[in-house]
């Protein structure tokens, strides 16, 4: 499965548009990480726990989008966009969407 955030693929022709596919994931972190993040808020610097958390969450959202694309019979997802929103304190929603297509 090809994932790209470009609108067309050089050297390949899009044969069919299969519509929008999407995937989302909401995750919160455990208390230990929250406490560490609280400390980091005093000292400043990177919150590694959160970086990992969001990375995992993004991978999961991508995975769900791919599942949907596969179910639609696509072999590529194009024009992929990410969006993040904090739903509540300590939880973030990651949303991924793109266009499922078949390419030659």
């Amino acid at each position: 499965m090809l994932i790209s955030n470009m609108e067309h693929i050089p050297g390949k022709r899009i044969t069919e548009h299969l519509g929008l596919v999407q995937g989302s994931s909401v995750r919160a972190k455990h208390v230990g990480r929250d406490i560490m993040a609280g400390l980091k808020n005093i000292f400043g610097g990177e919150l590694k726990g959160y970086t990992e958390l969001l990375q995992e969450s993004r991978d999961e959202a991508l995975g769900r989008m791919l599942q949907q694309a596969e179910a639609a019979g696509a072999n590529a997802v194009m024009n992929v966009r990410f969006s993040t929103s904090s739903v509540a304190q300590g939880a973030a929603e990651i949303y991924v969407y793109g266009t499922a297509v078949t390419v030659e």
Binding site: S4, M6, I42, G44, G45, E46, L47, T51
Partner: peptide, 21 residues
Amino acid sequence: PEKGRYRQTLVMGNTVISVDY
């Protein structure tokens, strides 16, 4: 670019940074 043949993949990088007190 028009020239050359390329394979393409999505790449990404993320960071969470906090300010100090």
